[in-house]
Computed example of a mutant assay.
Amino acid sequence: MPPAAPRRRLSPLLGLLLVLAAVPGCSEEPPPPLPGGPAAAPPAESPFWVDPQSAAARQVAAWEEAGRNGDAQVLRRIADRPMALWPTGDDPGTEIRRAAAGAAAAGRTMVLTAYNIPYRDCGQRPAGGAKDARAYRSWIGAFAAGIGGGKAVVVLEPDAVAHTVDGCTPSGRHAERYRLLSEAVDRLKRNPHTRVYLDAGGPGRTGSPADLVAPLRKAGLEHADGFAVNVSGFQSDTAARAYGAEISKAAKGKHFVIDTGRNGDGPLPGDRAEARCNPPGRSLGRAPADRTGDPLVDAYLWVKRPGESDGTCRGGPAAGAWWPDYALGLARRARE
């Protein structure tokens, strides 16, 4: 049996090429999901985790494979930014544990939205939520357990409090809702590194900001880290900040976070309720960061994931579905 041929040393250039060939994303197809897989590094000023499995990230990979490199590069303005994860299904734990593993590996903080309160969205489309109080308690318990000791920022139940103020949620459901929200705050705050922000609506949606203060207190604001404004909205930073400051003043200085995902150009002129559904000509807003330079604003976050539809208005897909053309428009008009 002849001796084995001597192993030849790789040249530095060839070694580099082999390494590059093994990098995920350089293959012909997008890599399959991997628990807590590698993520693009977020901007230096952001401590938040970037999800490598987001719809935007997958769209970038698909467009690169198809040779649409220019569009893919523009869409990275979304894909390479941290966005909130909205866990779905009866057990949110699996999705959250994936995010927690990825965030821990990257030394980052995950951003999550809890959105499953019973009678969500007043029972209208996109209706859903837990079937009753017992189911919600179980769901939020699994949500909190999924976070465990990881670092997380949670925006709690968009519109849940606002809809008790604007008449959308029947008065007979208010007491239960406040109780469930308050319990959710307390359960989440049992985690050592979880910050909780109750959703508080936004400018032009719920009348006077002062109307939110008492309901927010009933919903557990005192035990939360603060509240969130402009979630899924298009109001400017200035308008959102003024709205939040009014609530904060009446709530003993509570801090807040602002959703800046799609507010780069503000709302449509003469903004009406229907104009908040996939309005044309909008752009990405300020990048997510926790260094705001504002003593009241704890963070700018992308809570509503840019590029996900508000509903079937203006030719969009179902609410929450990925809409690449709309996403590309938001990214093209972005100033950052």
Score class of each variant (00 low, 15 high):
residue 117 I to P: 02
residue 175 A to Q: 13
residue 283 S to Q: 02
residue 315 G to S: 13
residue 81 R to D: 02
residue 301 L to R: 12
residue 71 D to R: 15
residue 116 N to R: 13
residue 14 L to I: 09
residue 183 E to R: 10
residue 104 A to H: 14
residue 231 V to F: 12
residue 318 A to G: 14
residue 21 A to P: 07
residue 11 S to T: 08
residue 28 E to K: 15
residue 24 P to I: 03
residue 287 A to E: 06
residue 309 S to F: 01
residue 321 A to P: 01
residue 302 W to V: 03
residue 296 L to Q: 13
residue 138 S to M: 13
residue 191 N to A: 04
residue 65 E to M: 03
residue 187 R to C: 00
residue 15 G to F: 11
residue 274 E to G: 03
residue 155 V to M: 08
residue 127 A to F: 03
residue 316 G to S: 09
residue 128 G to L: 15
residue 300 Y to N: 03
residue 138 S to Y: 04
residue 48 F to A: 00
residue 234 F to N: 06
residue 4 A to Y: 09
residue 246 E to H: 10
residue 270 G to E: 03
residue 281 G to I: 04
residue 166 D to W: 03
residue 14 L to W: 13
residue 147 I to E: 02
residue 227 F to K: 03
residue 28 E to Y: 09
residue 164 T to K: 01
residue 274 E to T: 09
residue 205 R to Y: 14
residue 141 G to E: 01
residue 259 D to T: 05
residue 232 S to A: 15
residue 213 V to C: 02
residue 161 V to P: 02
residue 135 A to S: 14
residue 112 L to H: 08
residue 288 P to A: 08
residue 129 G to N: 05
residue 75 L to I: 07
residue 321 A to E: 13
residue 310 D to H: 10
residue 294 D to K: 13
residue 222 E to C: 00
residue 102 G to A: 10
residue 174 H to D: 00
residue 146 G to Y: 08
residue 8 R to L: 10
residue 103 A to W: 10
residue 334 A to E: 01
residue 286 R to H: 07
residue 187 R to T: 04
residue 153 V to A: 04
residue 118 P to N: 05
residue 305 R to A: 12
residue 162 A to F: 00
residue 130 A to N: 06
residue 325 D to L: 10
residue 312 T to P: 12
residue 116 N to S: 01
residue 175 A to Y: 01
residue 226 G to N: 00
residue 127 A to D: 13
residue 223 H to G: 06
residue 156 L to P: 03
residue 238 T to H: 14
residue 100 A to L: 05
residue 92 P to I: 06
residue 220 G to Y: 02
residue 213 V to L: 14
residue 181 L to P: 01
residue 180 L to K: 04
residue 163 H to T: 11
residue 257 V to L: 09
residue 13 L to R: 12
residue 329 G to T: 04
residue 64 E to C: 03
residue 125 R to W: 10
residue 118 P to F: 11
residue 92 P to S: 10
residue 21 A to L: 06
residue 245 A to R: 15
residue 135 A to E: 15
residue 196 V to A: 02
residue 236 S to T: 15
residue 56 A to N: 03
residue 177 R to W: 08
residue 10 L to A: 04
residue 167 G to K: 13
residue 306 P to I: 04
residue 335 R to T: 15
residue 264 G to S: 15
residue 11 S to Y: 10
residue 327 A to F: 05
residue 230 N to D: 10
residue 154 V to W: 04
residue 175 A to P: 00
residue 53 Q to E: 11
residue 5 A to L: 06
residue 158 P to C: 05
residue 79 A to P: 07
